[in-house]
């Protein structure tokens, strides 16, 4: 991906504005605010749980579209999931993406973050063959897995500049193939200049997602994404699905129910005494 594309050079010579190709990776996730666990079998009740586009990914979509609007170019939205994940692609289109690709195959099911980043990176390679990719954007993590590992996994596999927790894109210089971003660390912001192609994962604060226009919604409603399965991608089967996943889930269980504490006041104690007793306990627990 690093070598220069002849077409781009031609455009450069013509002194036209360079066009960017941005790939946004999104994930369809269950709305975890509605997750329940079967107390008997200790398994997750997935039935009836509505799915949404991972909230962080909405900001990735938004950032992709904003960059396109500022620098020109095109946004391709990519997702791996069951066939229903087509809805997520459609949501991407409604946010202003130009094209969508759905990676779906039973063979991909059960992939952990290592296997998932393999499938996604191979798909991006394929996209890049058709049309050179300058920037990949992901949400900082998904709300179901909460790992924040797939984005970096893609960056490493494709040898892209890895920029995680990006809170602001300061500038992009297409002629120099470089961009400057601000990364949100625990105690401050790190300002990084990176060579492109790059991959960035974004935090929610990077932007406010827009309210899609009605015509984009109409366009999205009947949009049929390209569907790439194992046959199309021809991946190494030892690297995908359960087989390609080094981690295995041994057990899923409900967090232990909270134990009731104590009633701290006795009859006849004054409110002042109780308040002071409470204060002492809270100081001991280091919560105030």
């Amino acid at each position: 991906m690093i070598e220069c594309n002849i077409d781009i050079l031609k455009k450069d010579i013509a002194n036209k504005r360079l066009d960017m190709h941005i790939v946004v990776c999104i994930k369809q996730v269950p709305d975890t605010t509605q997750a329940r666990i079967d107390p008997k079998t200790n398994t997750l009740i997935r039935e009836g749980m509505p799915t949404i586009v991972n909230p962080y990914d909405l900001h990735a979509l938004e950032e992709g579209v904003r960059i396109k609007e500022e620098y020109g170019g095109k946004v391709t939205v990519l997702t791996m999931g069951p066939p229903q994940a087509k809805d997520a692609i459609r949501e991407g289109i409604s946010h202003g993406c130009d094209e969508g690709i759905l990676l779906t195959d039973r063979a991909f099911a059960g992939s952990d973050t290592l296997a998932t980043s393999y499938v996604l990176s191979e798909a991006i390679k394929r996209v890049d063959l058709d049309e050179k990719v300058d920037l990949v954007i992901c949400g900082k993590q998904s709300i179901d897995g909460d790992t924040a590992q797939v984005g970096p996994g893609i960056a490493q596999r494709l040898d892209l500049s890895q920029l995680t927790y990006v809170i602001k894109v300061r500038s992009i210089d297409l002629k120099k193939n470089s961009m400057i971003v601000e990364r949100q660390l625990e105690d401050g912001r790190q300002i990084v200049e990176a060579r492109m192609p790059a991959l960035m994962t974004v935090v929610k604060e990077i932007n406010e997602t827009r309210y899609s226009s009605l015509s984009n919604l109409i366009k999205a409603a009947k949009y049929e994404p390209a569907v790439w399965n194992q046959e199309v991608l021809g991946l190494d089967t030892t690297k995908i699905g359960l087989k390609g996943s080094p981690t295995t889930v041994r057990k899923i269980f409900a967090p232990p129910p909270r134990e009731a504490g104590e009633i701290i006041n006795n009859e006849g104690e004054s409110s002042k005494e109780v308040a002071e007793k409470l204060l002492k306990l809270l100081i001991e627990k280091e919560v105030i």
């Binding site: 997750a35 709300i143 080094p246 295995t248 889930v249 899923i252 269980f253 409900a254 967090p255």
Partner: peptide
Amino acid sequence: KQTRPAWGGNVMATILCKDH
């Protein structure tokens, strides 16, 4: 045995890495 909260803290999962 690596145990972590998942699904927004609704469940806990214990994860192993057996062969790597």
